[in-house]
């Protein structure tokens, strides 16, 4: 672990984070160890988000830093790294809704926390969710929607997954989603933000 790199990322010092990465590589550091530091930094930022100390700008900037560090590391990796994935998630914004900002943050946070995420994008029909679950054998489905008109498509999608006997847990999320809508749609749970999505997913796979 590089404390200097972790600090640079958690303190949002973007340029420093890149420089430290290059220095570490020049000094012969193992790229995988550098990735571990990135992961550690994201855990800290995730905790800060949960405690109301970090917010969306920090999540987005941290995401950018990790992306650019990964780019730098790529040229130093001799072989494809096969990381053990915690579980598989299929996610998308439901039919009729094209909002993607919050969903993209959820995808990123699930990914960085070790899940293999299939992102179906926006305006995704119930059939597409069912197909994707069959194809990927995912055990978790995330339905996103920003508008109140997303309630019914969520309900329809949950019903279609049940109809297809998909062995999945379903979470819903979005600006107008709450406990009442969770019950209305028949989903297993709802989450207020990306961190909640990660803890639900971890809880469901028993991690």
């Amino acid at each position: 672990m590089s404390q200097a790199l972790i600090s640079a990322i958690t303190e949002m010092r973007e340029e420093d984070a890149r420089q430290i990465t290059t220095q570490l590589l020049d000094g012969g550091a193992d790229p995988l160890k550098i990735l571990d530091s990135c992961k550690q930094a994201m855990d800290i930022i995730g905790d800060q988000f949960e405690n109301g100390e970090a917010f969306i700008p920090e999540l987005i900037l941290a995401g950018e830093m990790i992306k650019s560090i990964s780019e730098i590391l790529k040229s130093h990796m001799t072989e494809e790294v096969v990381t053990h994935k915690l579980g598989k998630v299929v996610i998308g914004t439901v039919q009729g809704d094209i909002h993607n900002i919050a969903k993209d943050i959820v995808v990123f946070m699930l990914d960085i926390n070790g899940f293999e995420v299939t992102d179906l994008g926006v305006d995704v029909s119930a059939e597409k969710f069912v197909e994707a679950v069959k194809e990927t054998e995912a055990t978790i489905v995330g339905l996103s929607g920003f508008l109140t008109t997303a309630y019914d498509p969520m309900k329809v999608t949950v019903a279609a997954l049940k109809e297809a006997k998909a062995d999945v847990k379903i979470m819903i999320g979005g600006g107008q989603v709450n406990e009442r809508i969770c019950v209305y749609t028949g989903a297993d749970a709802y989450g207020q933000d990306a961190i909640a999505a990660v803890s639900l997913a971890k809880q469901w796979i028993g991690a």
Partner: peptide, 18 residues
């Protein structure tokens, strides 16, 4: 923007393509 029947279903409000 997408609007009813043009990128979003006929019964929904307009939506922004950010």
């Amino acid at each position: 923007y997408h609007w009813a029947g043009h990128g979003t279903p006929p019964n929904t409000s307009y939506q922004y393509v950010e």
